[in-house]
């Protein structure tokens, strides 16, 4: 596993896929995130990221909107396209 390829969810572009490596800490919404399918190892697709404003992410068969700051706290490993 090449750890330099680790990045945050907020840095992924529309259409990119990635695996979650960590949810980050202290945001106080981890409970929400896990219930919505965000767990380490889960695969996601970025449906929408216009570089500003919230993102839309598809994971576990559902679409979830996520604030930019929240997405910035989530570490992911991009999957080769």
């Amino acid at each position: 596993m090449d750890s330099t390829r680790n990045t945050t969810l907020a840095d992924l572009h529309s259409g990119e896929q990635a695996t979650i490596t960590s949810l980050g800490r202290g945001s106080g919404i981890q409970g929400r995130l896990t219930a919505l399918g965000f767990t380490p190892g889960a695969k996601l697709t970025v449906m929408q990221n216009y570089g500003r404003g919230p993102l839309v992410v598809a994971l576990r068969g559902a679409r979830v909107a996520l604030g930019r700051r929240e997405a910035g706290a989530i570490q992911v490993l991009p999957l080769p396209i």
Binding site: R32, L33, L36, V56, A65, L66, R69, E70
Partner: peptide
């Protein structure tokens, strides 16, 4: 301050 935003899009 600003609060966290997570929401499902059905």
């Amino acid at each position: 301050e600003r609060s966290a935003f997570v929401m499902e899009l059905p």
